[in-house]
């Protein structure tokens, strides 16, 4: 019956811990300090943000200040680009130049006396093909880089040696004197025939035609 009896009349809340650091105080305190620390960090970030915004504005203003001078350089570059592009396009034209004057001037020297030209013709450039409706983006200009040029000589030979006269003219057109303009000269099939329009008395009169392929006009 010696058993001792401990009587605890304290409520839980009235009981104090023996530890000098009381969690009931320290945990809320740490939480508040953490929140305050985050608040301070936020404030510092806000200040930094303000500085960054200001710095950006300063840089923008400085770039805007340089804009007129830069526009001047860009305009100069655009003008240079335009001039060279136009020159390149006109260069295509220059590359396509073909000359007839000297060749035509030389021609009478090689025409036999018995031959008389009735027509001398260089057909004008062919018309542009119609735009391709299947193409979505129409090209700005023609896409062909070469253009064929022909010289057609039609005439009449009236002598007993008509065919020789025409042959000698054809040979003359194939000589180096004409090679700067004429690449190929030939009599097309059926283009060497008797001149029936002049009546049966002119049996020796022959109509002929010579087609010459001139150097192509190259637009490149």
């Amino acid at each position: 019956m010696n058993a001792s009896l401990h009587l605890n009349l304290l409520k839980d809340a009235e009981r104090f811990s023996s530890s000098p650091i009381r969690p009931r105080v320290m945990i809320p305190l740490l939480a508040i300090l953490s929140a305050a620390g985050l608040g301070v960090w936020w404030m510092l970030l806000t200040v930094r943000l303000g500085n960054a915004v200001h710095e950006k504005m300063v840089r923008e203003a400085s770039c805007a200040e340089l804009k007129p001078a830069l526009n001047q350089v860009l305009e100069l570059r655009a003008r240079e680009k335009e001039a060279y592009a136009a020159l390149a396009q006109l260069g295509f034209y220059r590359a396509s130049i073909i000359r007839f004057g000297d060749t035509l001037m030389r021609l009478p020297q090689h025409v036999p006396e018995s031959i008389q030209f009735t027509e001398l013709r260089v057909p004008p450039p062919p018309p542009m093909p119609p735009p391709d409706p299947t193409t979505k983006v129409q090209p700005l200009g023609p896409t062909n880089l070469v253009e064929a040029v022909t010289l057609r000589i039609a005439g009449r030979a009236s002598s007993s040696t008509s065919s020789e006269a025409v042959r000698s003219l054809l040979d003359a057109l194939r000589q180096p004197a004409y090679s700067n303009l004429i690449r190929k000269a030939e009599i097309p099939k059926g283009a060497f025939r008797q001149d029936s329009a002049r009546g049966p008395g002119s049996r020796e009169s022959i109509l002929f035609e010579i087609t010459c392929d001139c150097g192509e006009r190259r637009f490149k």
């Binding site: 680009k81 335009e82 592009a85 136009a86 390149a88 396009q89 006109l90 260069g91 295509f92 034209y93 004008p124 450039p125 018309p127 542009m128 090209p139 700005l140 200009g141 023609p142 896409t143 062909n144 880089l145 637009f219 490149k220």
Partner: peptide, 22 residues
């Protein structure tokens, strides 16, 4: 005054294009 034939266009193309006037 005959046809106006557009001239072949280089790359890059100019703003002002040129043509052949016959």
């Amino acid at each position: 005054e005959e046809r106006l034939i557009p001239l072949q266009v280089p790359a890059p193309p100019p703003q002002q294009l040129y043509a052949r006037q016959l």
